[in-house]
Amino acid sequence: MQARRDELPPSVDVRDLVVQFRVRAPGVGPRVVVRAVDGVSLRVGRGATVGLVGESGSGKSTFGRALLRLAPASGGSVRIEGEDVLGAGHRELRALRQRAQMVFQNPIGSLNTRMRVGRIVREPLDIQRIGDRVSRRARVRELLDQVGLPRDAEGRYPHELSGGQQQRIALARALASAPSLIICDEPVAALDVSIQAQVLEVLKDVQRATGVSYLFISHDLNVVRHLAHETYVMYLGGVVEHGPSASVFASPRHPYTRGLVAATPVADPERARRSPLLRGEIPSPMEVPPGCRFHTRCPFAEERCREEAPVLGETGDGGRVACHFWRELPREDPRAAPTRGGA
């Protein structure tokens, strides 16, 4: 089984994806081209969970949407189970969207509130003409079971259920067409921690049962580390670090990843309070700095960083990092790293 899986094309294989928008600057300015996603490559193997982390404005959500052509790609390629997405015609695209689904942050915003839960979950089967009436009904029951919703949820409206249950509905609906990949965009960000844990467990259960793979987009490092086998870190449209989650979070190499890890609160008052490693804010995607896109906030930036963009290079232990100086940076725990004056 494992060998077979490896021979199959990955759930999604993205190469050098570019998404750009023409926008007007605030006030009355000329139209400018914003590269929200600037040449990102990413791969999610069958049955795997891949995390994509970054702050607002990093382009992570746009990237996720572009995989299903919900945002316009202007370069690169996207293959879902080996099939081309960007060049697909209307019918092919429809078929591809059976194989890759999306779950969003705010479940109530993505569910039709006038439909009962049973119909919401059944609708993809109706639209895709999967099975007959009897088998669809059985399938809906199976899906509700799979996401841990009670049977009587079928006849209720989304607003009668809690936020955690609504997110389970969204997941059940996404699973209806038996996709190979679900793109989860901040699926637990709006939920309380006790409910987050429930939904994360459901995601894991579903993966064990169906072999679905997840692209898990989140700003929450703890959640991503918990769930994802490997993680990509995005900053201003580009990937700055990628590797097995364990090493990305335990020994981050890129100064941005280190700053993110250092800024994540830990529920332990005995630990020394972190001093913010990163100063300032992520620049506007309309004004991506030249050279290394991170140099304006990097405490370690040097002349070269302002001029030459680093490429994503192998670290030799399964990871990749886009930094000229990652080898030379002090290796101590990023939490203890002093705030240093930069550019």
Partner: peptide, 21 residues
């Protein structure tokens, strides 16, 4: 606290969530 700590520690296999809401 248990849930928060479990989510934050990479080794946790199964999160012990609080049932219900």
């Amino acid at each position: 606290l248990r849930t928060v700590r479990e989510i934050a520690s990479p080794g946790t296999d199964r999160l012990s969530s609080i049932p219900g809401s």
